[in-house]
Design a protein around this nucleic acid. Structure first.
Length: 485
RNA sequence: CGGGGCGUGGCGCAGUCCGGUAGCGCGCCUGCUUUGGGAGCAGGAGGUCCCCGGUUCGAAUCCGGGCGCCCCGACCA
């Protein structure tokens, strides 16, 4: 019985395991449309918690939300040369509407620069209007060839920030501010610590001067690009004629940025923490943080246990997202499996024996051997202990993720044979010196499937960087290599 | 777009080779008994067998064509 219901083990087939976790925990389902997914209530609830946390960070740093159209006139997209070129292959185009052929086809936004800048251009007149700090929560469409739930779908949800500044320095400061917020969010909320850094010239966002990214390591040692922040320079300002009048009365192009994270983060969350029992969620992003499961035999016990459970729920409610699972159609064991599969951090069992001892039995989801690790808590202490336990679990997940990342990080690699050996036996993040040539990366990619993720920021760079590249040439700076989603 | 797999009740599958009018497990509904790690028994509902055409007395099964989805690669957040 238990055998049949078990997930494909993570160690056996990571991809099948991932799909299984997503399906079984009811985060998402497939749809009648190829490459599109349905985000189910449990998955959407996680996204809402992410949205709330990020939105507060954006607002606290002076950003405002707005909403721009889904449709972008095709001609708008074509105004920034690199931008069109970059997105051309993945564009979905509407050519008919109201039963008629449209005069000008409408692109379904793959990102909103091309519709936002013509509009923001009108909002920006004077240096007094700057900086202009706008964010929008939206869906976008990119026609990908190969899709996977949350990680890559034709349509996905994200936030995209778009800001305008008076100077390059201001735009750069904004770009790094957001990169920092993303990092903070991923560490403190997701317990998914990223390596941050700058992308190579050829890996930049189409139309950007500089692209920074957060790269997180998944449990299969692949990298997930989890957030990007771009300094767009004056490229879009020139393309869309976004000028402001300076204090001296001169007309200047603004300097702009854009940045985003998407529902891909949910996939990252799954691949960072989950195990063979199913989803594991960091408490801060768990839609249900505590589930109370009552246990009874006789009718009399049922009455008493249900009352105690309801009371326990009301004690925790308010501070904690708590669910009292009082269904009488499932036995307790079935409920345990269900909530473990869905990643609920703490289960509180309450039965006749607990009532007798004036206690509840807590079981923590993050411990791999959940079945054996029961922790009795005196009834009077539950309200105080639960928040502490949640905090400890949150920290424990971050510590574990950091440990995994460091265990699979290799610094100062200079020998290409060693590099290939690491990539072919488990993989990970490999820090090396780099000559700067695109062909060098291409060869490595052909040989090992690994690519340059970023030039690491100061916080992540090695103390000493080899002066030779793995190709044997002279190194200009350090890079981080990994196989990536 | 290449390679592979698959399309049969809500889900997972058997049946296809060798044609005879559809079955199993899970889930769902009703009732009773259960409940400290995926409950038991009894009864019940639910299917254009992906689509179109052909062969045949007869097609889930054979033949031809089409469509779709999943997985693995090349491109990408």
């Amino acid at each position: 019985m238990a055998e049949e219901k078990a997930l494909t083990p993570r160690s056996e087939d990571f991809s099948a395991w991932y799909n299984g976790v997503v399906q079984r925990s009811e985060l998402a389902g497939y749809s009648p449309v190829r490459g599109c997914m349905v985000i189910r209530p449990h998955g959407y609830a996680i996204w809402e918690l992410m949205q709330r946390a990020l939105d507060e960070m954006f607002k606290a740093t002076g950003h405002q939300n707005a909403y721009f159209p889904l449709f972008v006139p095709e001609s708008f997209l074509k105004k920034e040369a690199e931008h069109v070129e970059g997105f051309a292959p993945e564009i979905a185009l509407v050519t008919r509407g109201g039963g008629k052929e449209l005069e000008e086809p409408l692109v379904i936004r793959p990102t909103s620069e091309a519709i936002i800048w013509p509009i923001m251009a009108d909002w920006i007149q004077s240096y007094r209007d700057l900086p202009m700090l706008i964010n929008q929560w939206a869906n976008i469409v990119r026609w990908e060839m190969r899709t996977r739930p949350f990680l890559r779908t034709l349509e996905f949800l994200w936030q995209e920030g778009h800001t305008a500044h008076a100077t390059w320095d201001d735009a750069q400061r904004e770009t790094l501010l957001i990169l920092g917020l993303y990092r903070k969010f991923m560490e403190e909320w997701m317990a998914m610590p990223p390596v941050t850094g700058i992308k190579t010239e050829w890996d930049k966002f189409a139309g950007a001067d500089r692209t920074y990214a957060c790269e997180a390591m998944m449990q299969d040692n692949w990298a997930l690009q989890a957030g990007t922040s771009h300094n767009l320079g004056q490229n879009f300002a020139r393309a869309f004629d976004v000028k402001y009048q300076t204090e001296e009365g001169e007309h200047e192009y603004v300097w702009s940025t854009s940045w985003g994270v998407s529902t891909r983060l949910v996939g990252g969350l799954v691949m960072t923490h989950s195990d063979d029992l199913g989803l594991v969620l960091p408490p801060k992003l768990a839609p249900i943080q505590v589930v109370i499961v009552p246990i009874w035999k006789s009718e009399d016990e049922k009455v008493r246990v249900l009352e105690a459970g309801a009371q326990l729920k009301s004690t925790l409610e308010g501070e904690i997202r708590v669910k009292f699972d009082d269904r009488d159609t499932l036995n307790p064991g079935a409920k345990y499996y269900e909530w473990e599969e869905k990643g609920v951090p703490i289960r509180l069992e309450i039965g006749p024996k607990d009532l007798e001892k004036r206690q509840v039995m807590a079981v923590l989801r993050s411990s791999a051997d959940a079945k054996r690790r029961k922790l009795p808590i005196p009834a009077g202490d539950v309200a105080a202990r639960v928040p502490d336990l949640l905090d400890q679990m949150q920290q424990g997940l971050l510590d574990a993720a950091l440990r995994r990342r460091e265990e699979s990080s290799y610094r100062g690699v200079t020998d290409y044979e060693e590099f290939k050996k690491i990539m072919s036996t488990g993989g990970g993040f490999i820090y090396t010196g780099y000559c700067g040539a695109e062909e060098c990366e291409t060869k490595v990619k052909d040989d090992t499937k690994a690519t340059i993720r970023v030039v690491p920021d100061e916080d992540f760079g090695s103390e000493t960087v080899p002066d030779t590249c793995i190709c044997g040439g002279a190194a200009q700076h350090e890079v981080v290599w990994a196989r990536a989603y």
